[in-house]
Simulated scan of single mutants.
Amino acid sequence: MFVTGERVRLRAMEPEDAEALWRWNHDPEVMRWMDAGYAQPLARVRAWLQERPRNGYDDVLFGIEAPADPGAGGAGGGRRLVGLVRLSGAAPEIGCADLDIYLGEKEYWGRGLATDAVRAACRYGFEAMRLHKVTLTVVVENEAALSVYRKVGFVEEGRLREVFRRDGRWLDKYTMGLLEGELK
């Protein structure tokens, strides 16, 4: 099963995706605004993808595929894994899930693919999962991500003070939310 956007296709992550995921997670530029955790060997990333439970209501992890040629738009050619998007922490009793996303292939940055992937993932959450709300946190200085979230319809709901450390400074994060009728 695929979830499609205008230019991206979302699909379940596979153990074969481990090398790309490992490479992205070890690229400081890709992980700049992420809570990266600790470096893991490739074998551990592969094992995590093999052992993780299949996608279910409480945790849906999608690989983001885009046209293999970054300049090709939505037409023709093969597809390439360029990032991931995840809806997690959902429970039917609360109708809410947390969203995480990143594009690991830097030549695909700034082409609208993250916006398309967020929109597709949220649409899936509202329609297939019957969610009422999708939430996220984002570092206040991460202007690219804020632009994506605002285009899709997320609004700032609060500010978490000094919860993210980068370059020797403590930075704030916004909490943002999107209700099911607000998707743009």
Rank of each mutant, 00 (worst) to 15 (best):
R166Y: 10
Y149M: 07
E156R: 14
V85M: 14
V148W: 01
G104Q: 01
G76D: 13
F164C: 06
G153V: 08
E157Q: 15
K173H: 14
A66M: 03
M129K: 06
K151A: 06
R130V: 10
H132F: 12
M129R: 09
T115V: 09
V138D: 00
R119Y: 10
G76P: 05
A91S: 15
V118I: 11
R119K: 12
V82G: 00
H132S: 13
R86Q: 15
Y102P: 00
V155P: 01
D167C: 00
L113T: 09
C122N: 04
P70F: 06
G168Y: 07
I101L: 13
A75V: 15
D100T: 15
G83Q: 05
L136T: 09
Y102M: 08
G78E: 15
G77H: 04
E65M: 06
E107C: 08
K173P: 03
R130Q: 13
R166S: 14
E156H: 10
E105N: 02
Y102V: 00
G83L: 07
T135F: 05
E107R: 08
V148A: 04
E93K: 14
G83I: 04
L171M: 13
K173N: 13
M176W: 11
G110I: 08
R80T: 07
V118Y: 04
F154P: 03
D167W: 00
E156L: 08
G168T: 08
R86S: 11
A97S: 06
V138F: 04
L171P: 05
G78F: 14
G177D: 10
E105W: 01
G77R: 03
L160R: 14
G110P: 07
G71R: 15
E93F: 13
L84A: 13
V140A: 12
R166Q: 14
E65P: 00
D167K: 01
A128T: 13
E93V: 15
V152E: 02
A128P: 02
G125Y: 02
G153Q: 09
A117R: 04
G153C: 08
L84K: 12
E157M: 12
R111N: 11
L171R: 10
R130F: 03
V152R: 00
G158A: 07
G95Q: 13
R165N: 04
E157C: 13
D167P: 00
P92E: 09
G104A: 03
R119D: 06
V139M: 02
E127K: 11
G95M: 10
C96S: 15
P67V: 04
K151W: 02
A75E: 15
A145Y: 03
D172A: 11
L84Q: 14
V148G: 01
A121W: 00
T115N: 01
I94K: 14
R86P: 02
T175L: 14
E143T: 12
G177E: 07
G110Q: 09
E65S: 02
R130G: 08
L113R: 05
Y149I: 04
R79T: 06
E127L: 12
L160T: 09
R169M: 12
